[in-house]
Simulated assay, not measured.
Amino acid sequence: MKPTTRGTLAAVLTGVAAALGAAAEAPAVAAETVPVPVPLNGVENALNVQVPKIAGELPVPMPGAPEGPRYVEGRLIPEHALPQLPVTGGLPGADVRTPLPHILGHGFDHLGVGAPAADLRTLTPGLSTDTPLTVPSADNLGLPRLPQAAVLPPLLKTTPGANLEMGSRA
């Protein structure tokens, strides 16, 4: 085999391996939350007591595409000089379960609080400016109107929720 043929074959195999690796990695990147367990088994074994079970979820923020500038008739500068960037993610979630001993009798009950990760949609702050297209005004000492600027506030939309439960441990 010639060295150029070997090099071409190596390049093709490297490209195929990279494509297969990217395809295998795509589901991990597509996850919306990352589970975070809190390992307390060592405490339970060392002290010989029942400890709470704690787990959490951390959201993965995903930036979106900003809305581009809009040109409006009568304005020199586009409507959104600095566009707002949408970011979707979530609020962190938690799941806590703790045993409650029976005061009279045998066994345990449990108390649990579950707060799942809630969707969160945000828009970053933006800037909108307006330069007037006017002639000098006698009312304004011969000057044109001053430019107008507005800071667009950030926007947050979410609906968090939680569950509180008590019962016998099954």
Rank of each mutant, 00 (worst) to 15 (best):
P154A: 11
P116E: 03
G142M: 08
P69I: 13
E32G: 10
P132E: 10
A162F: 15
S137L: 14
L155I: 12
A18G: 07
E67F: 03
A55R: 06
I54W: 08
D109C: 05
G114W: 05
H80S: 12
R6F: 04
A10L: 13
A26V: 10
P92M: 14
L133E: 06
A31P: 00
L104K: 07
L143W: 08
G68F: 04
A22Q: 08
P86A: 08
A55M: 09
G105V: 06
N48T: 12
L76G: 11
A19Y: 07
A81W: 04
K53L: 14
L20C: 07
V34D: 02
H110N: 02
G107C: 10
M62T: 13
P153D: 12
P86G: 05
E73Q: 10
K53T: 10
G105I: 05
P69A: 15
A10M: 07
A94D: 00
E57H: 07
G64M: 06
A30K: 05
P136N: 12
V135R: 14
H80K: 13
A94W: 05
A55V: 03
N45A: 15
P35H: 14
V43G: 03
L82V: 14
G56C: 07
L156Q: 09
E67H: 04
M166P: 00
T14S: 12
T33M: 10
A65K: 10
L91F: 04
T8D: 02
K157R: 15
L155S: 15
R145D: 10
H80A: 14
L104F: 07
P66E: 12
P160R: 15
L141T: 02
D130P: 00
A11M: 09
R75S: 10
M1V: 11
L143K: 11
M62L: 11
A94I: 13
L133M: 14
T4H: 09
L141V: 04
L100A: 09
P99K: 05
H80N: 12
L104M: 02
I103E: 01
L40N: 05
H106V: 03
L127E: 02
L164K: 11
A22V: 05
N45P: 00
G64T: 04
L123K: 11
F108M: 06
P99F: 01
P39D: 15
E44A: 15
G7A: 14
G21V: 06
A31W: 01
N48K: 15
T122M: 12
T129R: 07
V16I: 14
V16T: 11
H106E: 12
P27I: 09
G74D: 04
P61Q: 11
H110T: 01
H102F: 08
S128H: 01
T129S: 10
R145Y: 14
T129G: 05
A26P: 02
D95L: 08
P101G: 03
